[in-house]
Structure formats: structure tokens, C-alpha cells
């Protein structure tokens, strides 16, 4: 009995340590730059896509109306959604400027057949953070752009009308060595896509080269889940 508890206690010691890792290297991220900036609408509707994808699992809809105080970037951003392998991303997305309320829009579209999903974004801000990896003598860096805000969604489904209010969080992460230029990029990823971190680009051979030169610290295979940690929590 004691042997079991003893082993568990020892295991708990390890679990108390905080580590951040990518798929191959073990990083010890230190925050070196941080800014929180209010924005009228998220630049890229990843969290909104997550809401639409979740709703699509329960009920079908033909298109998505994304409502917010749009700028040029956010207005064209939905055009890039089909890059993500998600059923909701392949639906037509249209950016609508805030005007009539979401409920009023739902009322106008309340009719038999597959109506739209109306998704509104407000109270948005972005957090820009730059981390440096202490394990690589601060040579490896991670740039994070995190979008947060309130998301309200209404589905004027004639069978079961539906609405949801949630706090949406999405982020883009670029990990590079010394400079964020081609040839020095380790990985580029986004969250959430199907509720997970989605790797857009990974240069494993470059990571292996840095590991073999002992510039990066290799992740121990046995003890760290490579996808469990992305970066430390950002300040409020």
C-alpha cells in the first residue's frame, strides 16, 4: 500500500512542474512583450467558426451571417475560412455591419427551410505577446496574437429556435528562431479548429537541426504531452 502511495507522491512532484512544449522541443517560455488592444471586431473569425461548427452538429443551416463593426480585414477574412478542414468553414459566410439587432435579423429570416446562423461579435480585443525560450538562451521565440470577445449567435430554426452567448477566444501562434523570416520559422498554428490547435505549418527538419546543434532542448518522450501546452496564460 505504502509503495503505491509513495510512487504516486513522487509522480505528483513531477506533475507540479510547468513546462511548455512543441512537438519536438521543450521550451521554457518567458513573456518579454505584451499589449492588449481593444478592437471593433476580431480580425479572423476562428472562435465564431467554432460556434458555427458546434451548432452544425445539432442543426443544419445554409449560410452564416457574421455581424460586427467590420473593417477591411475582417470583411475579407471569411474568404480564407475554407482553408480549414471544417464543414462550417465551407458554408458561405457574409460579413454584416452592426445595425439591426441579432434578434431582429433572426426575425426577418424566420421561415421554413434552412435559414442562416447569425453570429455577432462585440466587446473584442486582441492580445499581442512575444515569448522567448529560456532553454534556448532566448533564441527561439513565439509570437502570439490572441483574440477575445463576446459572441452571440442566433439560429432562427423553425423547429427549435436557438441562441447562445459565449466568450470566444482564438489565437495564432508563430514560433521562430531569432527572426520571423522564411527559413527560420519552426511552426505556425491556429486555435480553435475543431476545438483543437491546428498546425498550419511545421518545419520538422529545421527543428531537428536546431536540436542536433543543441540550440533547442529536446522534449523527453516519456513525460510531456507535446500538445498539452502551447504558451503560458496571458495576463488580463
Amino acid at each position: 500500500m505504502l509503495v503505491t502511495i509513495f510512487a504516486l507522491v513522487l509522480a505528483a512532484v513531477f506533475c507540479g512542474q510547468t513546462v511548455q512544449a512543441c512537438s519536438l522541443a521543450l521550451h521554457d517560455w518567458k513573456l518579454i512583450f505584451y499589449r492588449k488592444i481593444p478592437v471593433p471586431v476580431p480580425f479572423f473569425p476562428l472562435a465564431e467558426l467554432d460556434v458555427a461548427a458546434t451548432r452544425l452538429e445539432q442543426a443544419s443551416f445554409a449560410r452564416v451571417f457574421w455581424v460586427g463593426s467590420h473593417n477591411f480585414i475582417s470583411a475579407v477574412a471569411p474568404a480564407f475560412l475554407p482553408l480549414f478542414a471544417d464543414r462550417a468553414a465551407r458554408l458561405p459566410w457574409a460579413a454584416f455591419d452592426s445595425g439591426p439587432s441579432l434578434i431582429a435579423m433572426a426575425r426577418e429570416n424566420y421561415c421554413p427551410g434552412e435559414g442562416p446562423l447569425i453570429v455577432g461579435s462585440d466587446n473584442s480585443y486582441i492580445k499581442v505577446a512575444l515569448f522567448a525560450d529560456q532553454s534556448s538562451a532566448f533564441g527561439c521565440m513565439q509570437l502570439v496574437i490572441q483574440q477575445s470577445g463576446r459572441i452571440r449567435a442566433v439560429h432562427p430554426d423553425t423547429k427549435t429556435p436557438w441562441a447562445q452567448e459565449t466568450n470566444g477566444i482564438s489565437w495564432l501562434s508563430l514560433i521562430f528562431y531569432q527572426l520571423p523570416v522564411p527559413g527560420r520559422i519552426l511552426s505556425f498554428s491556429a486555435y480553435p479548429v475543431q476545438k483543437n490547435r491546428f498546425s498550419i505549418y511545421e518545419d520538422h527538419s529545421y527543428v531537428e537541426a536546431l536540436l542536433s546543434q543543441r540550440i533547442l532542448k529536446r522534449r523527453p518522450d516519456l513525460v510531456v504531452d507535446p500538445y498539452r501546452f502551447d504558451f503560458p496564460e496571458l495576463p488580463e
Binding site: 439587432s101 434578434i103 431582429a104 433572426a106 452571440r152 432562427p156 427549435t160 429556435p161 436557438w162 441562441a163
Partner: peptide, 26 residues
């Protein structure tokens, strides 16, 4: 319950009802 709230808000059309509806939905 949410479904009934949405339906009621769509039928009502009053701005004050909408605010209350979103509070309850939240």
C-alpha cells in the same frame, strides 16, 4: 428554455425584451 426565450423575443420585437432575453440566455 432557451428555445422558448428566443421564440418569445422574436415574436415580441421590443428592444427591452431583447436585452432581458440575452441576459437570461447568458
Amino acid at each position: 428554455e432557451k428555445s422558448e426565450l428566443v421564440l418569445a423575443a422574436m415574436n415580441s420585437g421590443e428592444a427591452s425584451t431583447e436585452a432581458l432575453t440575452w441576459e437570461k440566455i447568458g
